[in-house]
């Protein structure tokens, strides 16, 4: 067993290390920039939108009824989602899988549904409008690629919370990382 306390018990690496998280944060930032561009087109800050492959596709998709179902456009919602991903990915140190499980789980909740909505929108483009939007698909690709690498950290946090509960300690305190703050390293060392 690895005695480095940064690494979750039974793991061969730390899923909350910066080398694991930085690529996801970088992807989220790129997604944010593209989605913000699309949102700015949707409110006509930009008069046209870049579309290299599908002719009028982006214009049809970005002005469709689906894109205006909510009070904010789907582009704006996406931009907010990627920003939330980037922030939730960046907050906390490399031990956050046990010091901030709530943040890691929130991160997973941002990544998962955002990916789901992106895929739904990609399905609706051809099915409802028989059109494709290149940049929309690029952002969807980013959402999808982020899911796999983000979920290992969520798993480590869930395992930590479950382990604390099975040891008879408060699930609530473990979820908010309070047990780690109060017990500190000594308690952990004693447990080993």
């Amino acid at each position: 067993m690895n005695h480095d306390s940064d690494i979750p018990p039974g793991w061969s690496y730390n899923p909350a290390s910066w080398s694991q998280r930085l690529p996801i944060i970088a992807l989220a930032v790129v997604g944010f920039v593209i989605a913000a561009y699309l949102a700015l087109y949707q409110i006509r800050v930009f008069p046209t939108v870049w579309e290299p492959f599908f002719g009028q596709g982006s214009i049809i998709v970005l002005n469709s009824e689906v894109s205006r179902l909510l009070p904010v456009s789907d582009g704006a919602l996406g931009a907010f989602g990627y920003l939330a991903d980037a922030i939730a990915g960046a907050v906390g140190g490399k031990r956050r899988w046990k010091t901030m499980p709530w943040m890691v789980i929130l991160f997973g909740l941002f990544i998962g549904p955002l990916g789901g909505i992106s895929v739904l929108l990609v399905i609706l483009q051809p099915v409802l409008y028989d059109s494709w939007c290149t940049l929309c698909m690029v952002t969807a690709l980013i959402s999808v690629v982020m899911i796999g690498p983000a979920m290992d950290e969520v798993l480590a946090s869930l395992q930590h919370v479950v382990r604390e509960r099975r040891a008879g300690r408060s699930l609530w305190r473990a979820f908010w990382g309070l047990s780690e703050q109060s017990h500190g390293g000594q308690m952990l060392a004693a447990r080993r």
Partner: peptide
């Protein structure tokens, strides 16, 4: 046409996620 337009993105998403070891 519609069937493949629905299955394609779903397959892409789940296969891409399954490529990572934890999922």
């Amino acid at each position: 046409r519609t069937n493949d337009h629905i299955v394609g993105p779903l397959l892409f998403t789940f296969a891409c996620t399954a490529a990572f070891q934890s999922t």
